[in-house]
Amino acid sequence: MKTNDVILQTGTKVVFFIIFLFSIHIFFAGHFAPGGGFVGGLLTTAAIVLLLLAFDLKTVQKALPFNFMIVVAIGLLLALGTAAGSIIFNVPFFTHAFGDFYLPLFGESALHTAMIFDAGVYLVVVGSTITMIQTIGGDS
């Protein structure tokens, strides 16, 4: 029988953002507290899965119009690029740089290239898991 999922869908709209924000939080926390790119990415995936559960593939595709394979590629490039940046400075691959910078909006803040790398990880995790779920879900 055809059922509506109004309760679920309404709840999801709120919950999705909570989870998403939480995942971003976990991602940024990574360097000093438990968390990081993986968990963050997976949690974002979980949020999107929730969307998929509550709505359907087509709606979610409309809401999040990314080609997730490209997201994977971008993530990989980001991660590789961070690592490979050191080639330019002729220091061993993967040498990270960090330091305190003055940024106009945030004031004094610590920046770490490892963060960019972790962002790459995040993107790859999200991209590939969502690709899998989308393709499986879209299989007939």
């Binding site: 990574g30 360097h31 000093f32 438990p34 968390g35 990081g36 790119g37 993986f38 490892a114 972790d118």
Partner: peptide, 11 residues
């Protein structure tokens, strides 16, 4: 420049 050793090892 990190605090979470596991995460720093990873990245």
């Amino acid at each position: 420049a990190g605090g979470n050793i596991v995460n720093v090892i990873l990245v």
